[in-house]
């Protein structure tokens, strides 16, 4: 197993799966502005996926392309965080998932801009500009809905209670992370935790929401050992064309 390949798949699969998830709102978001915003964010994430997975395919050296990695792998080969494969649920869950992801993604990309791997640093420098807008949007939305009506507040609190156990996975390191940190390719995940917790708490207090006390974190997404049942269902939609008509071109 090549650690850099694994790491690149973790980055690219997380943006791919989240990009697909939020594109599911296209055409049916609650208001027009959100219907435009979510596919825009999806587009950024899919664009970032192309950069990560194109590099992953080069590192893998097996003659694959970014498209092959996205469309020809099955559940057990995906390395995305469990958080991003969670279903959209209601709008509160979609926004909470986005916020918990963006609050990790933005500082992670900031750290990667100084990666010892030049290509990774370049991709991060491009992506960090887009992620800045994503974080701004999702944190504003968490405050607006959390500190909104009785109904929106209740939905946001239950979304947070549901999704918080999926936020911790990004901050637990394994052998891939150790190798990336040892070669200064990527930061040690744990080092991002304190700032993450502080920024999440700050936004949540403005949103009048309460962070669950339990620190339990579901794991198995970025290692690929234990994806939830939701990822398989997502792939049947996302990959159906390449599965039904392999090598289709138009």
């Amino acid at each position: 197993m090549d650690a850099k390949f694994e790491f690149l798949c973790r980055m690219g699969d997380s943006t791919l799966i989240l990009g697909h998830r939020i594109s599911e709102w296209c055409g049916k978001a609650p208001v027009l502005e959100e219907d435009i915003a979510l596919p825009n964010i999806a587009l950024d994430l899919i664009g970032q996926t192309q950069m990560w997975l194109a590099y992953a395919a080069e590192v893998e050296g097996a003659g694959h392309t970014a498209d092959d990695l996205a469309m020809r792998r099955d559940v057990w080969d995906f390395r995305n965080l469990l958080l991003v494969e969670r279903p959209n649920g209601d709008f509160a869950q979609t926004m909470t998932r986005q916020f918990l992801f963006d609050a990790w993604h933005l500082p992670m990309l900031q750290a990667l801009t100084t990666s010892s791997d030049k290509r990774i640093a370049e991709i991060a420098a491009k992506a960090v500009k887009e992620a800045t807008y994503h974080y701004e949007k999702s944190s504003e939305m968490v405050v607006a809905l959390g500190d909104g009506t009785e109904e929106s507040h209740a939905r946001m609190q239950s979304a947070l209670d549901l999704l918080w156990p999926f936020a911790g996975e990004a901050f637990v390191s394994d052998t891939v992370d150790h190798e990336m940190a040892a070669t200064s390719v990527a930061p040690t995940p744990e080092t991002l935790w304190d700032d993450y917790e502080a920024s999440v708490k700050d936004i949540l207090s403005r949103a009048t929401l309460t962070l669950p006390k339990a620190r339990f974190a579901h794991k198995g997404g970025k290692s690929g050992t234990m994806h939830s049942e939701h990822l398989g269902h997502l792939l049947t939609q996302m990959q159906w064309l390449q599965r039904a008509y392999p090598d289709a071109r138009w």
Partner: peptide, 8 residues
């Protein structure tokens, strides 16, 4: 250079 990474 692309403006946004996913710009169609």
């Amino acid at each position: 250079t692309p403006t946004y990474s996913g710009c169609p």
